[in-house]
């Protein structure tokens, strides 16, 4: 988990050159680069990564939520990006506090985010600001609670 090769990584270098504030933290584990962004910078960084000719992250593979309960900020939202022209991959991460679980949507940048964000809303209760159709996708509409949260039990009965 050394930081030195990460600093030399062209993606990180480009991002830092574009806006120093857009990168909060970088790390590398098993050859995978993770860039942690401040929550408020997510949308514009996403736009930059997608449109910048030297990066072209045009394919959003996946968005995954992780609940780190009881640590605060509690949630991670991970974006797995792929650049089809350059064969590069990167993971973006934003931390989301449990008190105010809101992230801005990236649907205008990658329309595929629509269902991914609905799924995270459904299972974690994280809201996506600007999502046009944010309602449950896998669980029934009248379901109570968010199943993938760590304080939600794996089994049991509702009383």
């Amino acid at each position: 988990m050394t930081d030195k090769p990460v600093k030399e990584n062209p993606i990180v270098r480009k991002l830092r050159a574009w806006d120093e504030k857009a990168v909060a933290e970088t790390s590398q584990f098993r050859g995978e680069l993770t860039i942690v962004l401040p929550r408020e910078h997510l949308r514009r960084t996403a736009e930059y990564l997608q449109a910048e000719p030297g990066l072209q992250f045009d394919f959003l593979s996946d968005i995954s939520g992780v609940d780190r309960f009881p640590i605060e900020p509690r949630f991670e939202v991970n974006y797995h990006l792929l650049s089809l022209p350059l064969h590069w991959t990167v993971r973006l991460r934003v931390w989301v506090p449990g008190k105010d679980p809101v992230v801005s949507t990236v649907i205008p940048v990658w329309p595929t985010a629509n269902w991914h964000e609905r799924e995270i809303f459904d299972l974690f209760g994280i809201r996506f600001d600007g999502h046009p159709d944010l309602h449950r996708i896998l669980m029934p509409d009248d379901w109570e609670g968010y199943p993938l949260r760590k304080d939600y039990p794996v089994e049991g009965f509702r009383t």
Partner: peptide, 30 residues
Amino acid sequence: GEVYQRVESPRGEAGYFVVSDGSPKPYRVK
């Protein structure tokens, strides 16, 4: 740590995002 592993399933890119917290059970499998 966490890894994201892609494989080409017959239907396209199948990805496994596995997060470990150092315990014998996966912290999160997406």
